[in-house]
Amino acid sequence: MKQPQKRIPLQPRRSLLAGAVCGALLCMAPFMAGAQEYPSRDIHFICAFPPGSGADVLVRHFAEKLRPIAKRSVIVENRAGAGGNIATEYAAKAKPDGYTIYVHAGSAVAANMHLFKKPPVDAAKALQVAATINRQPFMLLVDAKSPYKNVAELTAAMKQKGAKATYASAAPTGSIMGEIYKRVTGVQAVEVSYRTAPDSLNEMLSGKLDYAMHDPVFALAQQRENRLRILAVSSGTRLKAIPEYPTMTEQKVPMDLTGWWAAMVPTGTPKPVVDQINQWFTFMVNSDETTKFLNSFGGDAWSNTPEAGQAMLVKSIKDWGPYVKLAKIEPQ
């Protein structure tokens, strides 16, 4: 499968000042009391992407940050493949003791329940969300040289072009966003699939492609370089970090496609351990530098209780069914 949300916001990690470490440890002190015995050995983070990918960097970043807080080694295990299913299965079947934590996009876990004919596990039952990390939209982009300043102008021009229009996508979320847009507006553009968003840049700039649905990391970087222009974001509400970009919904194309990352553990992990993990991640996610950094990539830092996170997983699984059908993606 195409991996949902290939580009993931990376997180900042300037040299951790001694003060920050001390502060972190002080803040953690009260939490430690709840679970004296956990962690008593190394913690393993499961990453569903190969070493070096954007997502891998995010996972390793949290591993590095958790080390001084948990006072244990945090080892990242890459178990890439099958669109994340291999890692999901491995994490779900691990011992539910809190030493195996799956750091991955909850939205991708949910999507895979529909993108595959036989998902390896029933994610809502097999996994427990311990903490959420961020939320991020996909973005509708056009060439910065093009005259379209909003979605309505683009739609009008694309209707004129009819089936001669083309657009790029590089992930299932982009495909789905493109299908919803066409369904709502009646545009008939032809989808051109790319492996990664940057692969599509040359053809965007040469005018071969009329518009694109891409991840925020690529979109914001190109907007900053003044090569591409962001017309709208796919989330239901504007993001706190980038309030200047309107939602597709505001632009009369209703949709709510939001990607979100989470730390997940196998179901059956003791409640105090889940709470401990939640406190760690909540603390890390809300640190100033992390929040600021997530923002600069078009995602908002987003922490929740384990219960709210789990509810989000269940809701995402429900939402993705119709999306996948709409985008006419054949489940594998």
Partner: peptide, 8 residues
């Protein structure tokens, strides 16, 4: 990839 965190 492995040494990346070391350089942070």
């Amino acid at each position: 990839a492995m040494l990346l965190p070391v350089t942070f």
